[in-house]
């Protein structure tokens, strides 16, 4: 390679790295704009904001709709993630460890909800939820969200189980532990970081989901994304930006927990 060619390549490399750096920082701009807009006092969205006020945060805190929507979303998210995690762990054990028959089909079905458009599931679930008398209850949304959350703990736990040899579990069985004791004392501590990560991903998937909630909930079981969506379709005010900023802050804390908790867990 000639000297000038090398120089040209180094220059191009630097340019590309700089460009990608700029794009990655640019990716934060839309989110920062939402936060910036939430601190203005005007009742319509203007950017850049010309003044500072906490007016919309006060209104957000006093708004009962948001309070009940946040509560609903938390209850639905936690229950759905718990159900998804239990099903995910048990299926991963069947597929990876017990090599139960039909594992290829079960794996495909357990991952399928992650790629299936949610509107398809929503159309099919609505009549079933009516038949079962679940329509309009929290359970309708919880069970639907458990289905779309399932792929995450299933994938993370499968990954954790394949990362170490099953000889440890066989040794435990040989030493007289039964299947349940082996799971509690050996397997679970080994896969705990994956379980926590899977639970958090499933929880986040539920917090973000709108279409199933749109079809399956009633005004009293309205979730947070659904409320935001209704407000956006009705009238766009900075209050939505304030609500979005609070949600962003809370999710950031959740991610921080998701990345730090498994690491702390490993150190202990």
């Amino acid at each position: 390679m000639s000297v000038s060619e090398k120089k040209l390549w180094t220059a191009w490399s630097r340019f590309l790295t700089g460009l990608v750096g700029a794009i990655l920082i640019g990716f934060l701009v839309p989110i920062l704009v939402v936060v910036a807009v939430s601190f203005q006092s005007k009742s319509y969205l203007s950017f850049p904001p010309t003044d500072f006020s906490l007016r919309w945060y006060q209104q957000f805190i006093g708004n009962d709709d948001y309070r009940s929507a946040i509560l609903n979303s938390m209850m639905i998210g936690a229950s759905a993630a718990a159900l998804a995690t239990i099903a995910g762990i048990s299926t991963a054990l069947a597929v990876v460890r017990a090599r139960a028959p039909g594992s290829a089909i079960v794996s495909t079905l357990s991952i399928a909800p992650a790629v299936l458009p949610q509107i398809v599931l929503a159309i099919g679930l609505f009549p079933i939820s009516v038949w079962l008398g679940l329509q309009g209850t929290l359970w309708a949304v919880i069970l639907a969200h458990a289905v779309i959350g399932l792929p995450f703990p299933f994938i993370t736990v499968c990954g954790a189980l394949t990362s170490y040899s099953n000889r440890i579990e066989i040794a435990s069985m040989t030493l007289g532990a039964n299947a349940f004791q082996t799971f509690r004392l050996i397997t679970f501590p080994m896969i705990r970081p994956a379980v926590i990560a899977g639970f958090i991903f499933a929880f986040a998937a539920s917090l973000d989901e709108l279409v199933l909630a749109l079809f399956l909930s009633s005004p009293s079981t309205r979730t947070l994304p659904l409320l935001l969506w209704e407000q956006l379709n009705f009238q766009v005010t900075p209050e939505i930006a304030a609500a979005a900023s609070v949600i962003l802050a809370v999710t950031s804390l959740l991610i921080l927990a998701a990345t730090l908790l498994p690491r702390l867990d490993k150190d202990n």
Binding site: P30, I31, V33, V34, V37, L45, F47, A204, L207, D208, L210, P225, L228, W229, L232, V236, I240, A241, A244, I247, L248, T251, S252, L254, I255
Partner: peptide, 13 residues
């Protein structure tokens, strides 16, 4: 990690 509704809202602004 920001919800899809919020990210779409950001682009509306």
């Amino acid at each position: 990690w920001a919800s899809t509704v919020i990210r779409s809202f950001a682009w509306m602004i």
